[in-house]
Design a protein around this nucleic acid. Structure first.
Length: 462
RNA sequence: GCCGGGGUUCCCUAGCCUGGUAAGGGGUGGGCCUGGAGAGCCCAUGGGCCGAGAGGCCCUCGUGGGUUCAAAUCCCACCCCCGGCGCCA
């Protein structure tokens, strides 16, 4: 049974509690409860009327002559009442569903209460952070001030920001991209192209090794599928639509992978299903005006390797921990200092019951920035997509749980590499873990990315 | 885009012409049988409402309308899938 409906009838306080934790109106629960009761009562009456009508119909089949005519008149009269009752039931049901579908996923007990991202709670740090002396106080406040012992080294030169590094290297052009396509687009060249490919290969290789099935999904989805995987509000803010077609460009491979089994009933023996998607991602980034306008941190398109899991409800919280551990292992492998934060209720989004972000340390900015998002969506997506499984010991079909997590998103990973492995002379050291993925390409850099010698190319990155 | 074929319950399939409680097989679960297993036989198998329970009832044949006392079945519109033609990296 769908968890929201189950809680509404069996534990409405839990729903109210969840709404309050999210800073939302718990009154919607009572409203939904009211319409659920009205609906059940009206449906009961409707079923009784239909039963009468069915019985009449069956009698008519066996009768002849005036007796038959009389029953037909009776049935006709009954139909009018049924029609009225049907309208009533339909109205109550629509109202109840509208209310229930608007309730965000029930938050997990361990999700911290908060308003925005400043209330997210760091839970562990990794790596030796390179801290410019001008950022030291803020860094210490954020780490030791919160009781974390974090490894760091102080440098007396301030690393160049990732956006400016594109210009320094001469390998990215966002000015010409803006002219051709608009802001938040980019041309990447040379070593950064190899780096993008190597990052994806690195992530995909490890995910496959860990038992995740590689998947190239559709890059577009029908609206019906999209409504099952994401909040309706995202259609305006995040998702591109193809003009004149019922197709939407995917914002992440999470979405087509979630929709893979829509409408299906799986065997419990088939679970868990582990997928790793590789795809471009397209995002409008509406509502992000003024944020990260330079460079390639926040862009309309990038490549991503994603982790996705379908599992039985009892296992989803274990899988949630596994997915963030996988991501951490990938980022540890790259040697990029980072931390994991527990996303607070105000920053959680409606789909997830709990979310971890992995944030990389960005030496030029002196703060951690989101690289990975790891969510347990419980049955929020599977209810809407009608993805169920047959329990092994019999019993009614149950909704699966779905989880997703970034493995590596290419452009963001590149920004983290450009800042963390930058040398004072403007070169960038390539993480050792990526070198074997660059090895097959003769023209790819292997150890160091050096600024490109000028060939009359204006490397504007603005 | 045009022409043809199709969409039935967890899966496969029958029913559609000729309207009257959706048949059969497979899978799965349970039971009988057995020292144990298999075979065999029996029951169950989607969603929902009422009921303490036993049980009762309603809905469900791609979607939405229409005709009818009654629609998987007849009519209309739409969606999707497959094949052929055209176009094509």
């Amino acid at each position: 049974m769908w968890s929201i409906l189950y809680l509404l009838r069996n534990d409405p306080d839990k729903l109210r509690w969840s709404q309050e934790r999210r800073g939302l109106d718990p009154g919607i629960v009572d409203e939904a409860l009211k319409y659920d009761q009205l609906w059940r009562k009206a449906l009961k009456e409707l079923n009784e009327l239909r039963h009468q009508h069915n019985q009449l119909s069956r009698q008519i089949a066996r009768l002849r002559g005036p007796e038959r005519e009389a029953k037909i008149r009776e049935a006709k009269a009954l139909l009018k009442r049924i029609e009225e009752q049907e309208a009533l039931v339909k109205a109550y049901e629509a109202k109840r569903n509208e209310l229930l579908l608007s309730i965000p996923n029930v938050v997990h007990e361990s999700v911290p209460v908060g308003v925005d991202e400043s209330d997210n709670v760091p839970i562990r740090y990794y790596g030796r952070h390179r801290v410019w002396e001008g950022h030291l106080d803020a860094f210490l406040a954020e780490t030791e001030g919160r009781g974390f012992k974090v490894d760091y080294e102080v440098v007396d030169w301030r690393p160049i920001g990732h956006a400016d590094m594109l210009t320094v290297l001469g390998m990215g052009d966002t000015l010409r991209a803006a002219r051709a396509a608009g802001s938040r687009f980019y041309y990447l060249f040379d070593d950064l192209v190899w780096l993008d490919m190597a990052l994806l290969a690195y992530a995909l290789d490890h995910m496959a090794k860990w038992g995740f099935r590689p998947c190239i999904p559709p890059y577009m989805l029908r609206r019906e599928a999209y409504e099952g995987v994401t909040a309706l509000s995202d259609f305006e803010d995040a998702i591109y639509k193809l003009e004149g077609e019922d197709l939407y460009l995917i914002a992440t491979s999470e979405h087509p992978m979630a929709a893979l089994y829509m409408g299906e009933i799986l065997d419990e023996d088939d679970l868990p299903i582990l997928l790793t998607g590789i795809s471009p991602c397209f995002r409008k980034e509406a509502g992000a005006h003024g944020k990260d306008t330079k460079g390639i941190f926040r862009v309309h398109q990038f490549h991503k390797v994603e982790q996705f899991v379908f599992c039985v409800p009892e296992e989803s919280w274990d899988w949630h921990e596994r997915l963030i551990k996988n991501a951490e292992e990938l980022w540890r492998g790259l040697g990029i200092p980072h931390r994991v934060v527990n996303i607070c209720t105000g920053d959680l989004g409606v789909v997830a019951a709990k979310k971890y972000d992995l944030e990389a340390w960005m030496p030029a900015q002196g703060r951690w920035r989101e690289m990975v998002s790891c969510s347990n969506c419980t049955d929020w997506q599977s209810y809407r997509l009608r993805i169920r499984y047959r329990p092994k010991g019999g019993g009614p079909n149950r909704l699966v749980h779905t989880l997703n997590s970034t493995a590596i998103a290419s452009t963001r990973a590149i920004t983290a590499i450009l800042e963390n492995f930058q040398e004072p002379d403007g070169t960038v050291v390539i993480p050792k873990a990526l070198r074997r993925y660059l090895e097959p390409f003769d023209e790819a850099p292997k150890d160091i990315i050096r600024p490109r010698a000028k060939h009359g190319q204006r490397g504007g990155s603005a």
